[in-house]
């Protein structure tokens, strides 16, 4: 076997081996979350590289070593699920670096981090002032997780006491001009509905690159023809406007009428509609 065929055979063999090992190891292997995955990831890679290029080596030796490293990570994962002690020993705990806004120098020293390195990690989290941090912890993987002080955290609807309409995941129902039937079913829709919606938007199926339907049954599409102006109706906003108009009309009629009985009826209904609008308003925001 000459050098070239050796390299070709070895490369193909190791692509298959590495693929199998990573498939078995799963997503966790790729994330390199723990010490073991990190080490085995590097080692498996270098073994493969070494055996492919080291022309005298026996191919099967390399495969064996990769299998061993792969099974070690696999075993480590399996035992880790069962035992907390095992996990603590192999993966280590997170180390608290900043608590209540104060840097814990002892822990920095223990992990051999300098204040410059800590500052650099903080900057990567967009924090430029240590005083802004309430709590920061060094994860076993080596990156820093930062909890900002409450007043510096991004504002949320909850902070503002706002009600927002709940929204579930969108479903992609058309890809490359093909209808994905299982996604369509998951969204609770059918072909008839999709055809109607597409005709409302005035496009044909084969011109649609991608279409998604949100949890309110609204279809948004992207067409192959980027010059095409697709109408983007906002039916929920329109409905809110209509509700408001009706409410204003009722109030107006109450002012205009001379009959006391009718005035009362209009006022009662205007108030009723007002309460209903207040309740439904968060759901009509899109």
């Amino acid at each position: 076997m000459n050098d070239y065929t050796h390299i070709i055979v070895a490369s193909i063999l190791f692509v298959v081996t590495l693929f199998t090992i990573t498939k078995i190891g799963g997503k966790k292997q790729l994330s390199e979350l723990s010490f073991f995955e990190y080490v085995s990831g590097i080692t498996i890679g270098s073994i493969a590289g070494e055996v492919i290029m080291g022309l005298d080596g026996n191919l099967l030796h390399g495969v064996l070593a990769i299998m061993i490293f792969g099974s070690f990570t696999y075993l480590h994962d399996l035992i880790g699920i069962k035992s907390k002690k095992f996990r603590d020993f192999f993966e280590g705990n997170a180390t608290v670096f900043i608590k209540e806004g104060k840097v814990l120098e002892e822990n920095l020293k223990k992990e051999k981090y300098t204040i410059d390195e800590l500052n650099s990690l903080l900057r990567q989290k967009n924090v430029f002032k240590t005083a802004d941090v309430e709590f920061a912890v060094l994860e076993p993987k080596g990156d820093l997780s930062v909890l900002l002080k409450k007043e510096l955290q991004p504002i949320t609807p909850k902070d503002l006491n706002m009600t927002v309409s709940p929204e579930k995941e969108a479903h992609t129902v058309i890809m490359d001009g093909n209808v994905l039937n299982d996604q369509l079913t998951a969204a609770g829709k059918n072909r008839g509905w999709l055809d109607t919606e597409l005709s409302i938007l005035n496009v044909t199926l084969d011109n649609v690159f991608m279409a998604q339907v949100d949890s309110y049954g609204k279809l948004t599409i992207d067409t192959y023809d980027d010059q095409l102006q697709v109408p983007s109706p906002q039916p929920r906003k329109l409905l809110l406007a209509m509700l408001n108009k009706c409410q204003a009309d009722l109030e107006l009629y109450a002012l205009e009428t001379v009959s006391d009985e009718a005035k009362q009826m209009y006022n009662k209904n205007a108030a009723k509609l007002q309460t209903a609008i207040k309740k439904i308003k968060p759901f009509l925001n899109e």
Binding site: S165, P166, S215, G217
Partner: peptide, 11 residues
């Protein structure tokens, strides 16, 4: 139509 088309029960 919204009530039928929405998949969020609260909505």
């Amino acid at each position: 139509s919204f009530a039928i088309n929405s998949t969020v029960p609260e909505a």
